[in-house]
Design a protein around this nucleic acid. Sequence first.
DNA 1: TTGAAAGCGCTAACAC
DNA 2: GTGTTAGCGCTTTCAA
Lengths: 363, 363
Amino acid sequence: MPEQSTEPRPTLEAVAARAGVSRATASRVVNGGEGVREPLVERVRRAVDELGYVPNQAARSLVTRRHDAVAVVIAEPETRVFADPFFALQLRGISKELTAHDSQLVLLLTEGRDDHARVARYLAGGHVDGALVFSLHLDDPLPGLINGVPTVYGGRPGWSGGSRGAVYVDCDNRGGAREAVRYLVGLGRRRIAHITGALDQTSAVDRLDGFRDVMVDADPALIVESDFTLGGGERAMRELLDRCPDLDAVFAANDLTAAGALRVLRERGRRVPEEVAVIGFDDMLPVTEQADPPLTTVRQDIEEMGRLMARLLLRGLDRTVSAAAAASASGSSAPTGGAGEGLVGVPPSSVVLPTTLVLRASA
Amino acid sequence: MPEQSTEPRPTLEAVAARAGVSRATASRVVNGGEGVREPLVERVRRAVDELGYVPNQAARSLVTRRHDAVAVVIAEPETRVFADPFFALQLRGISKELTAHDSQLVLLLTEGRDDHARVARYLAGGHVDGALVFSLHLDDPLPGLINGVPTVYGGRPGWSGGSRGAVYVDCDNRGGAREAVRYLVGLGRRRIAHITGALDQTSAVDRLDGFRDVMVDADPALIVESDFTLGGGERAMRELLDRCPDLDAVFAANDLTAAGALRVLRERGRRVPEEVAVIGFDDMLPVTEQADPPLTTVRQDIEEMGRLMARLLLRGLDRTVSAAAAASASGSSAPTGGAGEGLVGVPPSSVVLPTTLVLRASA
DNA sequence: TTGAAAGCGCTAACAC
DNA sequence: GTGTTAGCGCTTTCAA
């Protein structure tokens, strides 16, 4: 292991001495140089360079009570997180935005209930300026445990999340679902089935709601509950074909599920899209493009969602711009058409991103 | 946005006062309670609970110069990171280990060259106790930029990485490859092809070396360079079939590549494994199990690699146990058979995990 | 505009 | 064993 560098790093004191100014002035320059005369600024800057000075973040935090760090909390036990690149894309978006604001990303992965306490303690411990939380499940107790830390959620939190006032970023799950199903209807399909996602996640519930918005009195037999996985999609498709051999279209809650459905349809000799049209959700490229036939799907911009979560949080922390302004300034605010059963009580600062229907070969 | 809690958090001072002891004693108890008489320990503990005291990490770091934080650096631009769950699994392993040691995980994602400077600055800034670096490419300049920060690499670093003494954790790429190819030979296959990974990564080079170890004078036409992707696997397989229609087995550098090969073989009507046997590498479950036929592959324990990287780093930081001891105590050290062209200069602290051949239907 | 001085909350010598 | 005390490196009044 390469040894720890042992030479003491230069302090502000050293910089000040070298520049021939007081520590206070040196500090001012390091922090932007407001109200310091030009020649002095110059000298301090040079001293900083020559000494290779880097501020000691711990000392700074001690007095400013800022950390320039944000926690990202991800409930991990769920296999889904690993099955698709969702996670990585979201993180990438978040990371980009934080980096642009000189903030660090502290990653908190949780495995189970006991970890929740740990995370809550950490957040309450004031080690970070704020938190970005992926609250995957309706019954997740975490939101209730978070106190006194500015937080933005990824995906609309479920009810028990105490979501009264929670700020979140989500895509228009409901609206996207509606668009997909309307498209199928426009294609002349009449027996349209839906394979749901895991219904303990709001995204699955919202997509189901969108389906129902269009298929107001859908045959209940055409709706089968699943879990967002490929295997689940296969099982659901088999059940569906057994129950309703006359179906002519399937709207799956995500691409993986759709891929499973596709496989079973092929197995059973149903031609796609001629006999059965299939639409997925997410537009996970490795899945949609490699599917056979390539999958028509509802795209959501996952990386942008991550970026937006971070932006919302940081703006809130700056207290410079209102969160509402942040949302619209992002250039991506949308009518919250799919956000749930009414906007009452939901602050305007949450953002629901629009989705787009991407046409490929499966529908 | 939920507002920041504004009530000042209790300090050690407050705890001490409430427990009727000095700040020093309170501090001792908070840090383990060594050398403090039981009744006092008890009183301090109670005070901590009653006040909900949480140590101020910034203040602590200021004096101890420890941060209880580790940076994880991932070079991100590469698409591969997103195409498979590698990334997430590795992080999960790291996270588990760090959590067990009360260390935080600071995630640094890099997009390009300019980000390297940023990362180097951050690491040099002494914000973390150490770094775990995924040095994906042979020519990555990052290792050279890292100074004075204990570092463990994920995967054997390439030459320009100044790997003279670098500590790394890797799987036995070369040995695993050898085992796979020997198995094919044992099956009676004689025209065994290899689709390589991206050869600017040591893992690809090592797997190729392993292939050559067994196929000492392989027909050069049976080796085709690829890039670890599914599409790359397809292209390579087509080329291979055109060049050597008589091939009877394929060892692919990873599962994704093998999946691409499988697809092309089916397309061309070659039966697997009867006519062509196929073996992959990694055992990425979603890929191997869903492949058609299910893929025989060389498994590496990715999560364990992450865990081990963290363990090695932390032990090094503790300076309690030598890194070498850490390696063998992990129960997973292996003869470094695949680690490269000789162990000279490689410190004993690097760990090379064994691989296992997992037999499914494709070979 | 600049400097002097007072802490931020904590740990670690060093006394007792 | 326990308390006293001196900083860790920085920002920020407050005077000058």
